[in-house]
Design a protein around this nucleic acid. Structure first.
Lengths: 336, 336
DNA sequence: TTGTACGCGTTATCAG
DNA sequence: CTGATAACGCGTACAA
């Protein structure tokens, strides 16, 4: 069933059918109704491929994400997909894993699929080394690229992120004000957002004139699924002589591991041991005491990202960098 | 840069370029190399839309899922996307929520997008009422539909699921053998898989000649993000006079809530109170004691689903219904 | 207001 | 082995 069949049955030209289809101007109500009736009767649906060829778009946005089953990233995928859908765009999902080459291939692949834009979900796509980000700048020459939870200053690249530096800065100050000493910063990788968090922590420490031992910034290199490996990492640090009475974690999973560690060490939380997580996920309420955590407002971030993307696609100017504030949500693992 | 440009620069016809592009038969090595050189030099990429129009496919599979940020479903999305990618198919993601009309619209929408097949992720798409599933049968007339974690007997619909009935049956027997009494079955919704789980539990109970009080099958109707609401539900049940010393939950989140409930009631786990979860997710290791849980082998299920889908797309006959066995993974919340 | 005719970039079917 | 040329189904100037 094509536009030709409809035009024939309705006794009009295909141009008229096309006009009706696109709610185009100037079609007499009479013929319009006739065409609609025929379409209805034939259960006609325009061919998406032909349409794509003619219009050079299929209203699709590529979603790149290292791991869509990650507790945090899956939330972002969810909100972003909802937002795209609300704006009549489809989401083409591509999970790349951490391999650099795989990320680059994925980006190239999406270009060849002729999506209208690409959203990089998570800061894992941005490296500290500027030259490693050139693949993004290259792709941005062909279509707009939105960064969720990361920042890169480049033409046609738009960054939307939470102010992780500031949030961690304030969290550290809050702990220090509460009289906590020996804060261990427990993070996962050298990603953009984690390094911003660490930087905020260090800034707060140095502002208070406190030294920062390198051993008090502990990186966990395993899978986020493996909580016991995180606990082991903490235990090893402790055995190696690192002293800490508090942990700021770069996500709630690590914070949960910190809590498990504290319990195994028979440390009373929060009296003897304080913990602050990050993301304010459902994990914060699955334990006892519940996790104090930094809410980076993921839903708001995603909403803003979609709004900006729509403006960009419409050809309107938008800010290249959007930063939103986080919020410390106080629960049972801190004394305040 | 089109196929015409390439043909011109290479001094051949577009037909030859197309042949080279598709690794088609009979092109002399000489011209083949010449064409490839020109393509390389021009950084040529074939237009995906034109290709789609000609071949009537863009190698895309629609992924329908009520909520891709769900701990369990996001895992399925992940494995399925990986599998599709490995077979050169793209994943078009569509999250529908629980609204029935939204599910139906999503399915129709994907048809109009001319995807090659559709995967319904999660049992939320299958209703107990047969007539409510007609929208799936209707869509299956146009393209193959794969069901992950659900079963529906209809033409061109292929079901891949874990044997939830059997798994829960065995889990119940294991608890009873360990001397546990008053098992509460804690589940979420009247979905296909949850009702199968409940049925397996009841079967085991009746096999052992034990009565099943309706109050010992407790449904939680809130969000899976809200653990405290689950705990409240359990507490209300207890206050209402329901006695239970053990819980089998239809997912790990509910099981975690059960553990939280037990701790609040100062019940020693597993000595005084046993808990079995479902899905064997990372949640099983985030608590203390760790959760005994039923592993429904999600990765295997997804792998099998992809294998079958590829066969179906290749036009080969495949079984309509594939059931895999689960496995009870014993940890700290049971005495065995 | 309506219709004609061409373009979009491929693939595939024929001849040669 | 290669080259014209016709689909594929729709959007849209341009003409009427």
């Amino acid at each position: 069933m094509t536009i030709y069949d409809i035009s024939e049955k309705a006794g009009v030209s295909i141009a008229t059918v096309s006009r009706v289809l696109n709610g185009s101007s100037s079609v007499s109500e009479k013929t319009r109704q006739k065409v609609l009736d025929v379409m209805e009767a034939c259960d006609y649906t325009p061919n998406a491929f032909a349409r794509g060829l003619g219009l050079n778009t299929m209203n699709t946005i590529g979603l790149l994400c290292t791991n869509c089953s990650d507790l945090y990233l899956s939330k972002a995928v969810y909100y972003i997909e909802q937002g795209l859908r609300a704006n009549h765009y489809d989401a083409l999902l591509y999970c790349t894993g951490q391999d650099k080459e795989s990320k680059e291939n994925a980006l190239k692949f999406l270009l060849s699929k002729k999506v209208d834009g690409i959203i990089l979900i998570g800061s894992d796509f941005i490296s500290e080394k500027a030259e490693d980000n050139s693949y993004i700048q290259e792709a941005a020459k062909e279509l707009p690229i939105m960064l969720f939870d990361a920042v890169l200053d480049a033409p046609n690249v738009y960054s939307i992120a939470s102010d992780d530096f500031q949030s961690t800065y304030e969290a550290t100050l809050a702990l220090l004000s509460a009289g906590v000493k020996d804060i261990l910063f427990f993070y996962q990788a050298a990603s953009y957002s984690d390094s911003r968090k660490l930087a905020g922590h260090k800034e707060a420490m140095s502002k208070m004139g406190l030294p920062i031992s390198p051993s008090l910034a502990l990186a966990f290199s395993g899978s986020l699924e493996n909580i016991n490996a995180m606990v082991d990492t903490l235990q090893n640090a402790s055995k190696s002589g690192t002293t800490f009475h508090s942990i700021i974690a770069s996500n709630d999973t690590l914070a949960l591991a910190a809590l498990k560690y504290a319990k195994q060490e028979n440390l009373k939380v929060p009296e003897q041991f304080s913990i602050i997580g990050y993301n304010n996920s459902m994990l914060t309420s699955c334990c006892d005491p519940e996790l104090t955590s930094i809410d980076n407002k993921i839903e708001t971030l995603c909403g803003e990202l979609i709004t900006l993307l729509m403006e960009v696609l419409a050809g309107n100017p938008v800010p290249q960098k959007t930063m939103l504030s986080g919020e410390l949500v106080k629960r049972g693992t801190t004394t305040f």
